[in-house]
Amino acid sequence: MSAARHDLAAAGAHLASLGLSPGSSGNVSIREDDRILITPTGADLAAIDAGNLTVLALDGTHLDGPRPSKEFPLHTAFYRRDPATRAVIHLHSRHAAALSCRPAWSERSALPPLTPYFLMRVGQTPLLPYAPPGDVQQAADLEQLPFAFRAALLQNHGPVVAGPALATAVDAAVELEETAALLLTLGTLPARVLTEEEARAMADKYGMPWSGREPVS
């Protein structure tokens, strides 16, 4: 059995242990060459069977294993839009899902640059308009957004993050949830966010996408 299968199962268990995957919600995938390993539909991330994962082609064709999570189009969209992507995580984590029900901070990021760690590990995170879970058009819209990003919030739904490695994607998912929790804790209280110069400097240092409040061209 490949190391990628064991790594995916371990990542799912870790995210579930943090309380970021209630019930059978959430799905995780990892790219192996020209194939994608993804958790099956209805899988509990706390107890993923590494030997019973779904295998997809990059175009979403089902190659082997059980029926994939209905959210698989989001995963394949991330892999196609950026060849450097090696892992994708979609969660229903409480605070990020709650934040997805609020208006976006800017056209390119639902969250402001609240902490340096958000810029280091997540970067700009667009808010995608509501669509039913598994909606193919929403995934197509994500794939075609004309600016760089490694994470998105699905309106009234939750976060989806991508990374050049599974560990990077896990860190991004955790940091996105923490930033959302901080924002909700602050509520309407006055809060300082990083200045444009501070945010760009941090994002550039760590190679993360950040456009501030620039409009979509």
Rank of each mutant, 00 (worst) to 15 (best):
H62L: 14
E177I: 04
T125W: 00
A57M: 12
Q144T: 12
P68M: 10
L145F: 04
Q124G: 11
R200V: 12
L37V: 02
G19R: 05
P103G: 09
M1G: 15
A110H: 08
T188N: 14
A3S: 14
H95S: 13
A46K: 12
L153D: 08
R94Y: 10
T76W: 06
M120R: 14
E177S: 01
Q137Y: 15
G26T: 03
Y117I: 05
T115M: 00
Y130D: 11
T76R: 04
G187E: 08
M208Q: 08
P129Y: 05
L91S: 00
N27K: 03
M202Q: 12
R150T: 09
R35N: 13
A3I: 14
S211T: 06
V216T: 08
P133C: 13
H92F: 02
P190D: 02
L45N: 08
A11Q: 05
L111A: 04
S211W: 00
T195H: 09
M1N: 14
L8S: 03
H90Q: 10
G207T: 10
G163T: 06
A191P: 00
D135Q: 10
A13K: 15
T125A: 02
A98D: 07
T188A: 14
M208L: 06
G187H: 09
M1L: 15
P40F: 08
A148C: 10
L127T: 10
D49S: 09
D7T: 12
V55M: 03
R121P: 01
E107G: 12
A181C: 11
A87T: 01
R35L: 15
V174P: 10
H92P: 00
G123W: 02
P22L: 06
P112E: 02
D44N: 15
A169P: 01
G42T: 04
A140N: 12
Y130K: 12
Y206M: 09
S106I: 07
F72R: 10
A180E: 06
A9C: 01
A165E: 04
D59N: 11
E178G: 09
G163V: 06
A87V: 02
A165T: 12
R80C: 05
L184H: 10
A148Q: 12
L58N: 03
E71I: 04
G163K: 05
L37G: 06
D34T: 15
E198L: 06
G187D: 08
